[in-house]
């Protein structure tokens, strides 16, 4: 721990204040707008009640939450064993896997949609037309963020020694991963999961271009006729995302006090990760404008 000098404390407060103005002001504006009674003046919670009362919006919310959950489950089931395996058994493939996982960052959403059209004819053939088939695209979409957090967590432990110790004590591969590796990269897995949720809940472009109705698509649609409801939904999404990230940082900080010194290293993993968090923001903050017109 470095001692805090008065100067660094001042800098801290200035940064915090700037941060507050930058982030809190739009949120305040959205909260204000969403509780306005546009016709009679005064305040009303009608827009917020619509979140559950409006069938279209309510089903979009549940679909997006389900999409987020499925994406996280599939992403973890694919990524965690693969990354462990590559580190232990095929280190030569690490560069390739990293490249593949980071690739989605460089491909524009439009290209993804056009490229996937052919694939999706097959996907819909097997899985039906459900919006939930977007899970497959979203798993790819969240790969870069998830890869980064899990990779950092794996780097913080001596994976080879720990897994060899577990195996010599009688653990098979599945047991080794479940009982030894996962508990020690838990904060990396959590941060991968939470960030993926934030990305999926904020995703608009791909869903809209492929003609699916997820939360953001419906928010935009509603925004064309009912500004306050759409802003309320945006704000709710944003707050949900913030709550997740807050929970994440609380959890990893709590963990830091716990057993391993390497949890300290893992906790720092979280730092670069929240980058995609503002992802819902541009879409959401775009709404008041859309509503006003």
């Amino acid at each position: 721990m470095t001692r805090r000098t008065p100067l660094s404390r001042t800098v801290r407060w200035v940064v915090l204040a700037l941060f507050a103005v930058f982030f809190v002001f739009p949120l305040y504006a959205m909260a204000d707008f969403s509780t306005r009674n546009l016709i009679q003046g005064g305040r009303t919670l009608a827009a917020w009640k619509n979140l559950v009362r409006d069938d279209q919006l309510y089903s979009a919310i549940t679909i997006s939450l389900a999409l987020a959950a499925f994406t996280v489950v599939v992403m973890l089931a694919v990524l965690v064993p693969t990354m462990i395996w590559v580190r232990l058994r095929a280190p030569w493939a690490k560069g390739m896997v990293e490249f593949l996982c980071l690739l989605p960052l460089t491909i524009p959403a439009l290209v993804v949609v056009v490229g996937l059209r052919g694939v999706y004819e097959w996907v819909t053939y097997f899985f039906g037309e459900s919006t939930l088939t977007l899970t497959f695209v979203y798993v790819v979409l969240v790969l870069p963020y998830a890869y980064r957090s899990i990779d950092a967590a794996l780097s913080a432990i001596d994976l080879q020694t720990l897994s060899e110790a577990a195996r010599s004590l009688g653990a098979g591969w599945a047991t080794t991963i479940a009982r030894v590796v996962v508990p020690n990269i838990w904060s990396g897995i959590l941060s991968a999961a939470f960030i993926s949720i934030a990305v999926v809940l904020g995703e608009y472009t791909i869903a809209s271009l492929s003609g699916y109705q997820n939360l953001q698509v419906v928010i935009v649609q509603i925004g064309k006729t009912d500004g306050t409801t759409s802003v309320a939904a945006s704000l709710a999404t944003l707050l949900f995302g913030f709550a997740l990230l807050l929970l994440l940082s609380l959890f990893t900080r709590g963990h830091r006090r716990g057993p391993g010194t390497n949890h300290v290293a893992q906790a720092t993993v979280v730092a670069p990760a929240p980058a995609p968090a503002p992802a819902p923001a541009p879409l959401a903050t775009a709404q008041p404008g859309a509503a006003a017109s």
Binding site: L162, E164, A165, S168, G170, G172, N184
Partner: peptide
């Protein structure tokens, strides 16, 4: 395979499971 050989091994690198207490480490096998 290694997990069926019943061999106790002590490694050069520290190899205790960081998420378990000393007692749970010893009881793991």
């Amino acid at each position: 395979s290694a997990n069926k050989r019943d061999m106790g091994m002590v490694f050069q690198a520290y190899s205790l499971f960081p998420h378990l207490t000393v007692l749970d480490n010893v009881a793991f096998g």
